[in-house]
Design a protein around this nucleic acid. Structure first.
Lengths: 161, 161
DNA sequence: GAAATCTAGTTGCGTAACGCAACCGGATTT
DNA sequence: AAATCCGGTTGCGTTACGCAACTAGATTTC
């Protein structure tokens, strides 16, 4: 039965994971954010088998995260370009990188540094902030059902508050 | 040979994905952020097979994201508590949820809404901001090697700029 | 105080996914 | 004309996943 799918889960995190597909897919998006567009460049950069890469790119195209653009004369040369939806994953990637910079590599051992193209200054750490600017931790949050909440979601939130 | 591991990749995103483990693991962390701590509660909430849950929790404990705490008298009752390292994944979860709110469910169909416990106001959208507050897109970023960059990383960044 | 239930798993088994290597056909370069 | 590049596909073996059944000690119920 393969991996369980989250597509039917009434949960934003699950839906996002389902759309992205799997671990490889997020690495593919990461490469794309850093400028890679060609099939063979993804394959080389990630060291991924080509059949796996094919299925992942197909999945990402099907979910509107990439657009497959014919850049050759007769359909033999393609670019996989991030859509707006794909570019919108940037905060996810940045958040993951910041987490590992702090908790895996440790300060002073970051493999890469991201700077603002225009000012040359480092991009400040992303944080979950309240509307007045206070940083928020999980305990500062209150989760309530939204307009698209399923009965399950409502039940779960009720039980958990 | 099973899934390829990213543990040896000199890349923050890959390291973070490796530490978290897989799709299930991130859902487990999500549940934990929302207050779940017990083995059976995770199992029920996620609908995950118990053997899978066992391996994921073990992995997360091994990577310091959860701590397994004996809350019974004789080692028969446990809580899996998020560590600081685990709580620090909050921005990742929030970023994923915000992405799917906008690009999967669409505005007005969000399954949950997250409010600030103290003020009751909605938590503002996370964004990648420059130090002067401008929102940044992938094209506004310049990636340079950090102090922990491997030779591979340096080569890759040189080629790509 | 015996039986049922709860908790936190483990074991066995079948299927789906992954990884590798080989192959392929059209286009481009040498 | 031959070699190489590009973007894959195919076949095969191994691994991981998912389900269901089982377990053993602790707790609750009758």
């Amino acid at each position: 039965m393969g991996r369980k799918r989250f597509g039917d889960i009434n949960c934003g995190v699950g839906q996002a994971l389902e759309a992205v597909g799997d671990w490889w897919s997020l690495m593919i998006v990461r490469d794309a954010v850093f400028g890679i567009r060609r099939f063979s460049d993804f394959a080389q950069s990630l060291g991924v088998a080509k059949n796996i890469l094919t299925t992942r790119l197909d999945h990402l195209v099907a979910h509107g995260i990439f657009e497959k653009v014919d850049v050759g004369s007769m359909g033999t040369r393609f670019e996989y370009q991030l859509t707006d939806k794909g570019e919108a994953l940037l905060p996810v990637l940045i958040a993951l990188r910041e987490w590992s910079d702090e908790w895996v590599f440790g300060r002073g051992h970051e493999p890469i540094i991201i700077r603002d193209q225009h000012t040359g200054r480092r991009v400040p750490k992303m944080r979950v902030l309240a509307s007045d600017g206070r940083p928020l931790s999980p305990r500062d949050l209150r989760v309530v059902p939204g307009p698209g909440a399923s009965e399950d979601t409502i039940q779960r939130l009720r039980k958990n508050s």
